Amino acid sequence: MRYREAAVRRDELRRRVEQQGYVASRSVAAELGVSDMTVRRDLDQLAEQGLVLRVVGGARRPDGAPFVTRAVAAAAAKEQVGALAAGLLAGELVGPGAVVALDAGTTVEQVARRLPGGLTVVTHSVPVMAACADRDDLTLVGLGGGYHAPTRSFGGPETCAQLAGLAVDLAVLSASALRADGLSCHDATEAATKRTLLAAAAQVLVVADAGKLGARAPVHVAGWDAVDGLVTDDGLDDRGRARLARWAPRVPVRTPAGRLDPEPR
């Protein structure tokens, strides 16, 4: 189907940005049967109306989806991932006294609600801080910086500087998209914080529901070589397993059904 009428085409572009979080102008132009220049003009107009935010190569939702909206999306899957990841923290990945850094994100919040005791928790996420603040069996280290409302977290140079001075045994990282080249998110400041977490941690565990596999997000964070493990939900189908086997053959994947072991080194 060719989207020749501008109003219909822009409605479709806005719908895709809202659902996917990000569209690449070149690929969406091919899908709609119009030129790349036409799509760029459409996205520019939508941006002027405040309906999308233009980024290099395409457009994304303005400031990303609100935290509460993302928390509701795939809620059962995120709870499943959170419970599984927290269980792994209860002795298999780290022991009592370990320093664990928790990223921002609705899935990481589910991990925080189920943490085993005896850990020092480092985080820039306000919901994670709230989940840990009243726990007498956890030591909480909250990081400051510029507040980012869509993720309900702090970020920027101040946050990264605080993280860079810490020695972290394990970082639990979220991602907006899992693709062949690794992890992506929607915001450059958010990506910088994630990269600093990666650099500070001896091990990195990524938590993401299966819907993130093959999703789109404009800012690349890191490749699969920076990841030591992935926890996802039972929505991971055969196609998703095959993708991960191609994209991240060295990364062990945990699902409620068990562990998908990586290829031997």
Rank of each mutant, 00 (worst) to 15 (best):
L43W: 07
A175I: 11
Q49M: 12
E48K: 14
V207L: 04
E190R: 00
G87S: 07
P150C: 07
D225I: 03
G155K: 00
V231C: 11
A177I: 09
H186D: 13
V17G: 09
A188K: 00
M1Y: 06
V56L: 11
R179Q: 15
L244N: 01
D103M: 02
G240H: 10
A167G: 14
T69C: 04
A192D: 09
S35V: 04
G182R: 04
R152Q: 15
G87K: 08
T139E: 12
V100Q: 06
L198A: 09
P116V: 11
L166M: 15
D181C: 04
T232P: 05
V111Q: 07
G229C: 13
A217S: 11
A90Y: 04
A202C: 01
P249F: 08
F154S: 09
D237L: 04
Q20H: 12
T196K: 03
F67D: 01
V121M: 02
A161K: 01
P157V: 09
P116N: 13
M1D: 11
Y22S: 06
G82F: 06
A6L: 12
R15K: 11
G118S: 06
G57F: 02
V72A: 15
Y3R: 10
Q19P: 00
G258L: 05
G240M: 03
D63L: 12
R259T: 15
D63F: 13
S184Q: 11
Q45F: 04
Q20D: 15
G95I: 03
